[in-house]
Design a protein around this nucleic acid. Sequence first.
DNA 1: CAGAATCCCGAAAGATACTG
DNA 2: CAGTATCTTTCGGGATTCTG
Lengths: 114, 114
Amino acid sequence: MEKTKNIEYGCPVEATLGVIGGKWKPLILWQLKEDVLRYNTLQQMLPGISPRMLTKQLRELEDDGIVNRKMYPEIPPRVEYSLTDFGKTIIPVLEALAQWGLTYMDIRQEKDMK
Amino acid sequence: MEKTKNIEYGCPVEATLGVIGGKWKPLILWQLKEDVLRYNTLQQMLPGISPRMLTKQLRELEDDGIVNRKMYPEIPPRVEYSLTDFGKTIIPVLEALAQWGLTYMDIRQEKDMK
DNA sequence: CAGAATCCCGAAAGATACTG
DNA sequence: CAGTATCTTTCGGGATTCTG
C-alpha cells in the first residue's frame, strides 16, 4: 500500500491546487464534469495514462471528497466514477482556469509569432 | 544559464496551471496582488524560499508576461517587482482558487475531527 | 474489467557558498 | 542588495508485469 499524503495547507490557494493540480487531475475532472464514466472509458479518454496513475489520481480525488466511486458486484466487474455534489462546486473554478488559459494561449501565440 | 522551458499546452486549464502552478508562484503572486515589492522584501514575506528559487520563479513569471521587473541603477542596487496589466487579469482566478480552498479546508477540518 | 505491485527516471525544489 | 553557481535531494510521474 502506498502512503497517502496529508499535507498542511497554510494558504487556501495551495489547498485548491493540491486538490486539482498535477498532470492528470484537471483532465480527469474535465471528463467527469458532466458524465458518469467507468474506469476503462476514462482511460481511453486520457491518452497515455497508465492504470497505476489513473487509479492513484482517482483515489486521491475520492479521499478529497471530489469523486464518487460506485462499484457493481458483477462479473466482469464494473466501476463508475462521478463527481460528488461537493466535487461539482469546483467546476466554476476549473472553468475560470480554462477561460484565462485561452486568453493566455492567444497572447503567447502572438508573441511566439514575431 | 539555465534552460528555459517551452511547453506545448493542449488544454487551457493546464496552460494556466503551468503559469501559476508550483510551490511558490501562487504565494509570490498573492504578495504582488496589490503591492510593488523589492527582491529582499519578497524573500522575507516568503519564509523558507531560497534566493535561487525566488529568482527562478520571478524570471518565469516575467517571461510569461505576468510580472514586471524594474531595476534602478543605484548602489546598492534596487529592484522592484510588480504585476503587469496582463498579470492583473489573473487575480480573479487566484481569488476563485482561494475562495474554494477556504470551503475545502473547512470540510476537511470537520472530517479530520471525527 | 479494474485494478495492485514493483521498479525506475527526470524535473522540481532545497542547501550552501560566492559576487558585482 | 540582488542576485549567480554548484551540488544534492525529493517526489511526481512512467513502464511493466501480474491478478481476483
